[in-house]
Design a protein around this nucleic acid. Structure first.
Lengths: 239, 239
DNA sequence: TCTTGTACGGTTGTCTGATAACCTTATATG
DNA sequence: CATATAAGGTTATCAGACAACCGTACAAGA
């Protein structure tokens, strides 16, 4: 684990990223209202005590996120809300237990529906992939990340079997975020329990999908995610 | 309508955005594999025929998306998939009917669950906001965007009443994307039908939430979104 | 008085060149 | 063989200049 610790040392964030984060916060917390103009690049450079090109790189980042739009000769403006082009999940936010639970609750909604869609749309190669992931879970040694990798793969294959690209993107993204957050919390004891107990739950999901039973697939996925949340000490709502 | 047409003229995209899009495509289409190194800034500047600072701004954008990570003195690398920090929905993709239906199906899963959570967690001010949005729907003149604005507000308030920040962010984002796509398709005739027919459906959602009945809230939201999809000519799956 | 054209000042977009900081590899030394 | 140093290459930041664009003010003409 010592080597892993060193690899987790965080490189300092570059100036443009830090400045973009600050300006982004000003905008998302309402201190710069939508449609309003940002200070000029020259003034921002003086204010932050950096060169203008650092400011330009920061604004390029914000522009890419859709938080800011620039007009040559005029200035940079905070956009109206509906111009935002991406959804971000800040990993640091997930260190907060309530935020983590909130994301897990949202993941539940998506994955339960995905299980039902997979029950309808899966193909034989999809089933083979699920079986492969199950086999990797069975072979996973304790105290390693291998069980988690197999778990992520299982969920990714379920999402892929929906034949819906957005379910695949969203579920893969959210599942990875939640697992990264679990890793960061270093709940090593929880990892072991997850690996052992959830194999049966994953098998139940696989079997419900294979028998093309959407209601049972939903139920199996629900049981699995509630179980996972419970093992993580999270209290989800079953509605 | 003529004035509106003129306001839609599109500004040329700046060089860094265009270059970031090209490099991003190379990465997402697998021609630059995860973990592999990009050409140096100097070489990219020569290849694209631009200055190095344009390249740096492009890379800053890609870095912000998590597609690329840079190491000073070494180079820029395409990231492993799990380092991607945001979910994007490209508006152009939603011009494709199947993609639009896929996103709508995902929206269904989220909004149905949100209605149930709102039934449990809403407050009196939440109900007042829902009523306000309903009043705006009633007052909306045909052939304007006002009905859509009220509809978006209604869904945003439902999501807010879940008391779950991620439901709020995700639902707001997806609802706006779908409405922008509808606008872009200029289905003016459909707009009128949406505004008139769906008020009753929204009222049913509001009432189920107010009576704290999660199952009924789910059912009401389901009927609303299936109805909306049907009016848009989309065939969703009810599972 | 109203409309059109021009000038001016300010701001963003891009370019050029330089140095700092970092990383990797090769070579020298004990 | 292990450690230290040098060299070369690359990114990160800085500074300055000019191009392109925009908004406003003012002048000229109808």
């Amino acid at each position: 684990m010592a080597v892993a610790d060193f690899s987790q040392i965080r490189r300092n964030e570059h100036l443009p990223a830090r400045i973009a984060a600050q300006i982004g916060r000003e905008i998302s917390e309402g201190r710069i209202a939508p449609g309003h103009k940002l200070p000029t690049e020259h003034l921002l450079a003086k204010t932050f005590g950096v060169s203008r090109s650092v400011i330009r790189e920061a604004i390029a980042q914000l522009r890419n996120e859709g938080l800011v739009e620039t007009r040559q000769g005029v200035g940079a403006f905070a956009t109206e809300i509906d111009r935002r082009q991406s959804l971000r999940i800040e990993q640091d936010d997930l260190a907060d237990r309530d935020s983590f639970r909130s994301l897990f609750q949202l993941r539940l909604a998506l994955e339960v529906e995905a299980a039902a869609l997979a029950a309808v749309h899966h193909t034989l190669p999809d089933l083979a992939k699920l079986d492969e992931a199950l086999a990797q879970m069975n072979g996973a040694e304790k105290w390693t990340d291998q069980g988690i990798v197999a778990d992520l793969a299982f969920h990714r294959f379920v999402a892929s079997a929906t034949r819906n690209e957005y379910f695949l993107q969203f579920i893969t993204f959210i599942a990875e975020r939640t697992h990264l957050a679990i890793n960061a919390a270093r709940a090593a004891a929880v990892l072991e329990e997850i690996v052992e107990v959830t194999i049966a739950e994953h098998v139940a999901i696989r079997d419900a999908i294979a028998t093309r039973d959407p209601a049972e697939a939903k139920e199996a996925m629900r049981r699995h995610l509630y179980g996972a949340a419970s093992r993580l000490g999270l209290k989800l709502e079953m509605l």
